[in-house]
Design a protein around this nucleic acid. Structure first.
Lengths: 198, 198, 198, 198
DNA sequence: TATGAATGAGGGTTCATTCAT
DNA sequence: CATGAATGAACCCTCATTCAT
């Protein structure tokens, strides 16, 4: 990669990082292209060399950040010797909850923008290739000795339950704080999994 | 109520209805005050007689619409002879899901804007008095012969599970359509309730 | 004067007093008809029964306030036994300066709005009749044993010197505070008068 | 200076000139940004590249114009062989009065906006460096063989006397025209100076 | 590639004025 | 006389986008 290409990548990443910071601190709507380029230290026109508009850069950020979160959780899981399926799923949930708890701006950004569609397409079947194979997470369910009526629905319900309850609990302590809520969530996950065993 | 007051109420409602239509079809951000007043057929200044700004009218709409949805479900429930708690909860969930299924714009609007905080304050403990007493829904849990570790958390988890899974399923048929998804949701609700019995 | 007429006068005066308060605290431009009628406690339409617009009420206030200031000074002068002309003029100047010093909002309002033209027409030759005869002040010069080349110019120069130096000194202490400045002003007045003796 | 920089300067000056014309013919309040940009022939947004708002451009104009007036007078003075201090001061006063007389819009603009504070900071101690050194005017008093009790107060009183009497006389011929008034003003200046000799 | 001056449509908001009650 | 809901023109200002350099 030549010097020019390196410079290009640096510019692109400066824009991505800056945009993420601004989106999470000020919100998508209040963040202007001006804000982004000024903070990133590039010229206004340069933005348009890399991204179509504000929404383009946002979409690229979502996939990037979500993939990163799962890779962290997945890596941590691989360092455990958990074998039971529900233990493994709950380990992942817990890890991700903690990531969100540690970085609330990340939680806001992901929650407001990540749909199941994006999740499935961008993460699970991701053809990105650059990072970990996220099919793993999905594979956990399929390669288990237990079988489920509909693994995708199961995963979907778990993801939705965790992410939506997290949001209110971590950000507003409503109805209770996340540490207190966790046992309920994990219990619920176990029950949902049991109910879907084939 | 005099002629003038009637006229005022009509104007206010024209603005509310128009705003709701536009918010749900074009989104909050893309809807302008101009759009609203033009469509509602009033002068721009009139908007500011009734609402502080776009966010004020949105907040008033959320409470209004959410209250309405629950009142419909509650009324339907009262016409059944269901006695078992889980049956009653699932009846409510089903009814609300069907309302969303019948009016997707409502689903979008409510999902994007209703937080648990608003839900609790505006609906359950609503001092509005104009409509049904929403404490009912909450009361269902407390007046039941069964008791739960933490009724509020239980309700919270059910609401979050239903609303977040609905969204993807009804709007995008992801991961599966709502009719197919329902049994899974209802099963999950039963399991979650069972796990929280004290 | 009937009850209705009394009520009318009360409304009019409420508007005048309120307008003065608002003009002096917020400025002419920032004060709206809305502000005035709300604070005065009358309906919006009522304003237009008494005044043409914001500028009409301002003009009526200027004359009213200026006349009042001079009447206070004049009355105080009549209670002294000063006989020398320059002493009498300086007494008036001092008295008016002190009134301004005690009520800076009055100073701002008068300074920004009172022109020599208004001063002459509204005050000196005032046909108002309701208050003191302001011709007095002018008459002081003419009835004096000393005579001046041009009494009106003399008065004009004194008024302009006093009012313009006051403004900066009282409001901003620039270039020096009013107490320190006074001897210079009074000295200057004496010199100007001497130079114009015929 | 490149082509772009030249263009920028031209735009900025077009805006300044246009704003001055409009402020002096229509008043600050009645002049809108729209007026300015339309007349100047630039886009609305361009205005905001150079100035924060209407008041920003006004402030920049005041300093600019006032400095210019004094520079003209100062230059004219340097071409005379006047040595007596009061003659020099009166020469400056006369020159400035004539400038105002020749351009009444300038008089209105300056009178309504120039305070002693601005005068002192922006003109006398101006660190601008671009124009003449205005400390000169101030220095005239200090370097004179005569000494004064308080040179700043002396200058202040002269400036205020001249500017406030000018305003009424030039614009409204009240109480008399400027040519007729001048001898009185100059006489007054001489008297005031004499009274302040230490 | 990279720049940033220039654009101008369109945003939210204000407020003097009217007129039916 | 008094009201105040309604009006709508006009305000200031923002900001995504372009394009000559």
């Amino acid at each position: 990669m030549g010097k020019i290409d390196l410079n290009k990548k640096k510019k692109r990443e400066a824009l991505l990082n800056t945009a993420f910071d601004l989106f999470t601190t000020q919100g998508l709507h209040k963040t202007t292209i001006n804000n982004i380029v000024e903070t990133a230290g590039v010229a206004k026109g340069t933005f348009y060399l890399y991204f179509k508009d504000k929404y383009d850069i946002r979409n690229k950020l979502i996939a990037h950040k979500a993939r990163y979160i799962f890779s962290i959780a997945d890596e941590a899981l691989s360092k455990t010797d958990l074998t039971e399926l529900d233990d493994r799923i709950i380990f992942l949930a817990d890890n991700i909850i903690e990531q969100f708890n540690a970085d609330r701006s990340l939680l806001v950004f992901i929650s407001k923008n990540l749909s199941w569609g994006i999740f499935k397409n961008e993460l699970i079947y991701s053809g990105d290739g650059s990072d970990i194979d996220f099919y793993n997470i999905y594979a956990i369910l399929e390669n288990s000795p237990k079988t489920f009526k509909n693994p995708e629905v199961l995963l979907f319900m778990i993801v939705e339950l965790v992410s939506s309850t997290c949001y209110s609990s971590i950000l507003y302590n409503e109805p209770i704080g996340i540490e207190e809520l966790k046992p309920y969530i994990f219990d619920a996950i176990r029950q949902i999994m049991k109910s879907q065993e084939a």
